[in-house]
């Protein structure tokens, strides 16, 4: 059984996530439009597509910070620990959110309810297939699990409170903050899928595969720098390697 406080916590998480998603949706008109031009060689159009993707990423960062700040206990951490956790979990949560928006029927990921992108669109935005293919593989894999909103929200909370992130100081507090979400996910799954004992470990393994994806993403960031495709300041702060 789910304890009342667990049920309440899950409902609050889902409501928070909906609120953060809605805010981004309202900002949608501000994003540089995705160019309709079909000319793949046009430098201007390619630059615009890259800008479109990076602006969607910036909105996602803002959503993730909003969500983290509302997680009970997060603001009790030192500012440095908050930054250490967000710095590494941001890309992983973006990948979780992308997988949640993956539509197998059109093999596309839909951002902000009406922007759907397939692999080719990701490539047109300047990303390399060494990164695009694992994103879609992961999204397909997550889609096969048919997780609901509560499971995604709990996975994101668990992902944020990962005590083994680089530069985290107060490991004990981060672990203590993570535990209630792990327990809630475990109970929630046992109630929702009583006959599937493997679902919980399968979900935790998705968190492990996010680590691999994160390193593939770092290679992508490095490749962008080689192509002198500059990341906007906020993304550069989080992902670029600053000497």
């Amino acid at each position: 059984q789910l304890a009342p406080e667990q049920l309440e916590m899950i409902e609050k998480l889902v409501a928070m996530q909906k609120q953060c998603n809605k805010r981004s949706f309202l900002d949608r008109p501000k994003v540089t439009p995705w160019p309709q031009s079909q000319d793949p060689q046009n430098r201007e159009v390619r630059q615009q597509r890259f800008a479109h993707f990076t602006e969607l990423a910036i909105m996602s960062v803002q959503e993730i910070v909003d969500f983290a700040k509302q997680l009970p206990g997060f603001l009790e951490l030192t500012r440095e620990d908050q930054i250490a956790l967000l710095k590494t979990s941001t890309i992983e949560i973006m990948l979780l959110e992308s997988s949640r928006r993956y539509d197998p029927a059109i093999e596309s990921i839909t951002f902000l309810k009406d922007f759907s992108y397939n692999k080719e669109d990701f490539a047109k935005a300047g990303l390399q297939f060494e990164f695009i293919n694992p994103i879609f593989e992961f999204s397909k894999g997550m889609n096969d699990l048919h997780l609901d909103e509560a499971e995604y929200a709990l996975l994101i909370a668990i992902n944020i409170f990962s005590a083994d992130r680089p530069n985290v100081q107060d490991h004990d507090l981060v672990e203590r903050l993570q535990q209630p979400y792990v327990d809630a996910l475990h109970s929630y799954i046992r109630i929702k899928r009583p006959n599937d004992q493997l679902m919980f470990p399968r979900m935790l393994m998705k968190l492990v595969s996010l680590r691999t994806l994160s390193s593939v993403h770092s290679e992508q960031v490095f490749a962008l720098r080689l192509q002198d495709k500059k990341l906007p300041p906020l993304l550069s702060e989080i992902w670029d390697v600053h000497e």
Binding site: V61, Q62, V65, D66, K69, R79, I83, K87
Partner: peptide, 16 residues
């Protein structure tokens, strides 16, 4: 160090 200025700003801002 004064790094992650923008991230610090997002964490400090309380939009509600």
């Amino acid at each position: 160090p004064q790094d992650h200025q923008l991230l610090r700003f997002l964490l400090d801002t309380d939009e509600k």
